[in-house]
Computed example of a mutant assay.
Amino acid sequence: MATLISVTAFTTTAMSQAKSLKDQLVGTWIYVSSTATREDGSAIERPKLQGAVTYTADGRFHFITVRSDAPKYASGDSARPSADEAMAIASGIVAYTGTYTVDESTKTITVNIETSSFPNLVGAPNQRRIVTSITDNELNFTNPRTPAGITLALVFKRAK
């Protein structure tokens, strides 16, 4: 009987300490860096970015990255950029939101993008993110294939 109680207590303690991947993801993560590679393995230069990704406990997420060197609008009016300013902003931002699920066995996040600054992402199939590592303070995941056909490896730190 004592052995049964000890095993039960140990199992309960171990299980309470082991968090699921989904539980570990919940929160806001600040963008640190990313690398991009083509199918042939060659590197693609990435602009300097800033941003974040947030995962909620109820299965929603929000992702945004913007160029950190984006020009300010000369007019000072967000509705009146010059053509060059608008192009610099539009080509330097990726923002999307929707729902997500986690496959604990493959450490895969599957996102269902509902709205995006890049409309081609909305409803696109096979939007997987493979978690390569996660700690209390750092999240690394790979997007194995973007619509442009590249692989992105992203690094985030937990927001404080």
Rank of each mutant, 00 (worst) to 15 (best):
Y31K: 10
L152Y: 03
I64P: 02
V66N: 04
K22A: 10
S116W: 07
E104Q: 13
M15V: 11
E104I: 09
Y100I: 09
M1S: 12
T35C: 03
A153H: 07
T99H: 12
V122H: 04
F118V: 14
I93C: 15
I150E: 05
K157Q: 12
D69C: 07
G149I: 06
R60K: 13
K160G: 10
D77W: 05
S133E: 09
T108S: 06
E39C: 00
T115G: 11
G92F: 05
N120K: 09
N143D: 06
K48V: 13
V26L: 04
T54H: 03
M15P: 00
N126M: 05
S6G: 02
A88D: 14
N112I: 02
L152P: 00
A18M: 06
K107M: 03
A159L: 06
T3W: 02
K48M: 05
D58A: 08
S68C: 01
A36T: 13
R46N: 11
R80H: 10
N112L: 01
F141Y: 14
T37S: 10
T11G: 01
P119K: 11
P71V: 10
G59P: 04
I89W: 13
T54P: 01
K22R: 15
D77Y: 02
A14V: 14
T65A: 04
A148Y: 02
D69A: 07
A2L: 09
T65Q: 09
I93L: 15
G149F: 02
V26H: 00
M87C: 03
T146D: 01
Y96F: 13
F141D: 03
R128C: 00
S20M: 03
T3Q: 14
V155C: 03
R80S: 15
Q127D: 12
T108Q: 07
L49T: 09
S6D: 15
R67C: 10
S82R: 11
V122T: 13
G92K: 09
K22D: 09
L21S: 10
I5K: 12
T35R: 04
S34D: 04
I64N: 12
I64A: 13
E138R: 06
S34K: 08
L4E: 14
M1Y: 07
K48S: 15
L121I: 07
A74G: 07
T97S: 14
L154K: 06
V122G: 02
E45I: 01
I64E: 14
V155W: 00
P47I: 07
P144V: 06
D58E: 15
G41S: 04
G27P: 05
F63A: 10
D136V: 02
P71M: 08
S75Y: 02
E45S: 11
F141W: 15
A57I: 13
A14P: 01
A159N: 08
A153K: 12
G51F: 05
T97I: 08
Y31A: 06
T132N: 00
I93R: 11
A124M: 14
F10S: 08
R158E: 04
P119G: 10
S6C: 11
T115S: 15
A18Q: 14
A79D: 15
V7A: 12
T135D: 04
Y31M: 12
F10H: 07
I30M: 10
T97Y: 06
A83K: 14
T65G: 01
V32P: 00
A88W: 05
A74D: 15
A57P: 03
T135F: 03
S133W: 02
D103E: 11
T146F: 00
T12F: 07
